[in-house]
């Protein structure tokens, strides 16, 4: 069943001579629980696509549908709700709030939504992400790998339909990279969330079930490597 659908997405930055076409009529769909890796050279439009899929940046043309609902049809408030509840974003540089501890960072999307924290899920994620005992550590008291795990925890806390990761292992050594990808794969299998990972790393890409390659804003290859 298709949960996420991108239809004729284009994104243009600048005007006139400075115009840059980051995405050029991209269309694809993702199934529920699917693990997709998006690869491509720098500047090919991978991150732009991820931001558009995540409701962070509006496309110049085209539509994104999540569960048949047009993500960009509503106003900014609806888009903010979409980002809080429907997607989990993981970045290369973690993007943690430096003054919040591990638990506060992980529960941030729930607290911003003014909902009560599901302590059971929090405990489960802390255990899964091996962050037990570090609940009240600040980001600067954690290693890079631990910070990325907090970031993953934050993305999963709200049980979103889609998890989007932009180079999640780009800032980590190979040992931590492997661990993070293993965690993402496990959570993908456990929670059946659609996982889309942008990566340069072929090893990371090969862990996905489907690999898409983008070059110059277009999908040049889209293949399912394992069912």
């Amino acid at each position: 069943m298709s949960i996420l659908k991108a239809c004729h997405i284009s994104k243009v930055y600048g005007k006139g001579e400075n115009e840059v076409k980051a995405l050029d009529d991209i269309s694809f769909s993702a199934e529920k629980g699917e693990f997709i890796a998006i690869t491509g050279p720098s500047g090919s439009g991978k991150s732009t696509l991820l931001h558009i899929l995540g409701g962070v940046d509006r496309p110049t043309s085209g539509n994104i549908y999540l569960n048949e609902s047009d993500v960009y049809a509503g106003n900014e408030e609806k888009l903010a709700i979409f980002r809080r509840r429907e997607v989990g974003l993981i970045y290369q540089f973690y993007n943690l709030i430096p003054v919040f501890d591990v638990v506060e960072n992980m529960t941030l999307p729930v607290l911003m939504d003014r909902r009560n924290v599901n302590n059971e899920r929090l405990e489960e994620l802390l255990t899964l992400l091996e962050l037990k005992g570090r609940e009240h550590h600040l980001p600067n008291q954690l290693s890079g790998g631990q910070q990325q795990r907090v970031s993953i925890g934050r993305a999963l806390m709200n049980a979103p339909a889609v998890v989007l990761a932009d180079e999640p292992t780009g800032n980590l050594d190979s040992k931590n990279s492997g661990k993070i990808m293993e965690l993402l794969r496990v959570s993908n299998e456990k929670y059946h969330q659609t996982l889309i990972v942008i990566t340069h790393d072929e090893k990371v890409a090969l862990q996905a079930k489907r690999i898409m390659r983008i070059e110059d804003g277009k999908i040049v290859r889209d293949e399912v490597i394992r069912s």
Binding site: G55, V56, E76, E77, A80, I81, F82, R83, R84, R85, L89, N95, L96, I97, P98, V99, L108, P109, M112, D113, R154
Partner: peptide
């Protein structure tokens, strides 16, 4: 500024 941008990314209410 960075933290405020993160809040926005994560869906800060209007």
């Amino acid at each position: 500024t960075n933290s405020l941008a993160y809040f926005r990314l994560l869906g800060r209410p209007a």
